[in-house]
């Protein structure tokens, strides 16, 4: 109770402090000012999940979430390397953001109503749409999750995964036997050894297990049913809306760049493009960066140093064997949609 009161108090102070600032045309963000004075961005990330946030053999952080941190740093400083990463566990992540230990949390965190409100977070968008699914051996000849009546299913305990599983089977009135195993590694081993008929976790996790852990990936199928919505995205503290704007539009700039065909390879040559939209995105006209409190070449720096969303996706997620699917642009049948930058 005490911590909550403290949070509300600090949120209130932050709001009160930013009120006069909002009145001005080029308002500033206290978080942005602190970051600029400090000289680097403090980013809370996951140090343990391949494709999203994981240090490689050289100790360099890489992943789709890490690219958000790098893009924000590129937008602020024009230098994507000015980031310090804090590896956060699932329990620590919200406290680290609330207490100001990190400026930005990008740790494959699902956007839910309760987190958006009572935890004092502000989600700025979705950089990966995930959802829970099932993987079975092809030899079982199962085509749909509804055919899993009486099946044994491997699942990790204490996660929303376990609850979603129970909800789904109860809603569809099918019986199943859960095999609850604490660690992901052992879960996969149990599934491969045939202890369970199916293995359930997020689709991204299933795809990466299929690509990297199974002897013959083609022997396993991921069923078409997606039984939960897991929109993963970056979040910031409540109370500094201008800072939230920056993080939100950094993500949209990467989407807009993909949609307009701007990549890290051709961004320099497109600086002289006559296309009005491209000119606005790259800061040649329009002064969009200044409205965010950033340099007008903010999006140019992001695209040049980090790349557009497709480049980031192909670099980090595609090697796991995950297709674009719903994470494709809206023009290609996906859900990724950027409001216009104008």
């Amino acid at each position: 109770m005490k911590t909550k009161a403290l949070l509300f108090a600090s949120a209130f102070v932050a709001v009160a402090a930013s009120l006069p600032a909002m009145a001005q045309q080029t308002a500033t963000s206290p978080t942005l000012d602190a970051i600029k004075a400090r000289g680097f961005l403090q980013c809370g990330a996951n140090g343990n999940v391949a494709g999203f946030g994981l240090p490689n053999a050289q100790g360099v952080w890489a992943g789709l979430d890490v690219d958000v941190c790098r893009a924000v740093a590129a937008a602020i400083f024009g230098d994507a390397t000015k980031v310090r990463y804090t590896a956060l566990t699932a329990q620590q992540r919200f406290t680290a953001l609330q207490s100001g230990e990190v400026d930005l949390l990008v740790r494959n965190t699902t956007w839910t109503l309760s987190r958006d409100t009572s935890l004092g977070l502000e989600f700025t968008g979705v950089n990966f749409y995930d959802g829970q699914g099932f993987m079975v051996k092809k030899s079982l000849n199962v085509k749909s999750a509804k055919e899993l009546n009486g099946a044994t299913i491997c699942v990790q305990p204490g996660t929303t995964t376990e609850l979603n599983l129970a909800d789904y089977f109860r809603a569809n009135n099918i019986r199943f036997t859960p095999v609850v195993i604490e660690r992901e590694e052992e879960n996969v081993a149990a599934y491969l050894a045939g202890r369970c008929d199916a293995y359930t976790t997020d689709i991204s996790g299933l795809a990466s297990v299929r690509a990297s852990r199974t002897p013959v990936p083609a022997d396993h199928v991921i069923l078409p049913e997606v039984i939960s919505k897991e929109p993963l995205g970056p979040s910031v503290r409540h109370g500094d809306a201008r800072w939230g704007d920056i993080v939100r539009w950094v993500h949209y700039a990467m989407l807009e760049a993909e949609e307009s065909g701007i990549t890290s390879a051709n961004v320099d040559s497109l600086m002289t493009s006559t296309n009005p939209n491209t000119q606005r995105v790259l800061g040649v006209t329009g002064g969009m960066g200044a409205m965010l409190g950033l340099d007008n070449k903010w999006a140019y720096n992001i695209i040049k140093q980090v790349g557009n969303y497709a480049e980031s996706f192909e670099r980090n997620i595609t090697p796991l064997g995950i297709e674009r699917g719903v994470n494709n642009l809206w023009t290609k049948g996906g859900l990724m949609y950027s409001p216009p930058i104008r």
Binding site: G47, N48, V49, A50, G51, L54, P55, N56, A57, T86, A87, L88, T89, Q91, Q92, E185, V188, S208, A211, S212, R213, P319, L320
Partner: peptide, 24 residues
């Protein structure tokens, strides 16, 4: 458990790399 990379956790992270998964 608080995300510091001591030698044991570093080994754990090293085998989280999809290339080397399963060699815990």
């Amino acid at each position: 458990i608080i995300g510091l990379l001591d030698i044991l956790n570093a080994a754990k992270v090293a085998v989280a790399d999809p290339q080397w998964r399963g060699f815990g």
